[in-house]
Amino acid sequence: MIDSAVADQADSDQPTRRALFSAGVIGAALAMAGSRSASAAANGLSEGDAALVGFAISLELTARDLYDAAIAAGATGQVWSVLREQHESYAQRLAGIAGIPGDIRNDEIFDALVSGFKGATRSAAFEFENVAAATHTELLGVVTDGAAAKSIASIIAIESRHATLLAELAGMADNYDALFHNTATALSPEA
């Protein structure tokens, strides 16, 4: 078992979001989204929407696998297993709407963040939840399908809550900016 309180001290060593972007994550996300679009129109989504929803699915599957990595590394506690399930549910919901198989994670995002999760650092998970919420929020500005937009909104609602919960668990309960204001930069499938 990894002591999260101790592990959190190593947070400064984890890759930052800026580093994540510089690692070329965005391009990979775009490639992944594009690879899904050809099979996507089955549920009536436009190709553009299908690519965007495919991007969101890959992000959620990446989240699932990051939580799995934390659990495999010895993270204990309900929060890890439940959040893992939450993200898998989001991928499944979006896959159902888009008619896209929900089975491809984004390896580059995963590789960039997995060490933080293997350390079972709640602040690593907190940062990821903020990035996920910010990314989905940006998607709402471009996804035209109403059902997909409503599902994405319902995911943003709870991922925002995840972030606040994880901030509290990571010892940031007095840091109101961390608790209530999401300053994360969204991942973009268009970069």
Partner: peptide
């Protein structure tokens, strides 16, 4: 989000909605 026609407004609404959710969580 399900009623707004301007897509950019959907985004802005959930940017605020996310913060309301954070308040409720705390």
């Amino acid at each position: 989000v399900g009623s707004l026609t301007d897509l950019s407004l959907r985004k802005e609404m959930m940017r605020i909605g996310g913060e309301e959710n954070r308040h409720a969580t705390a």
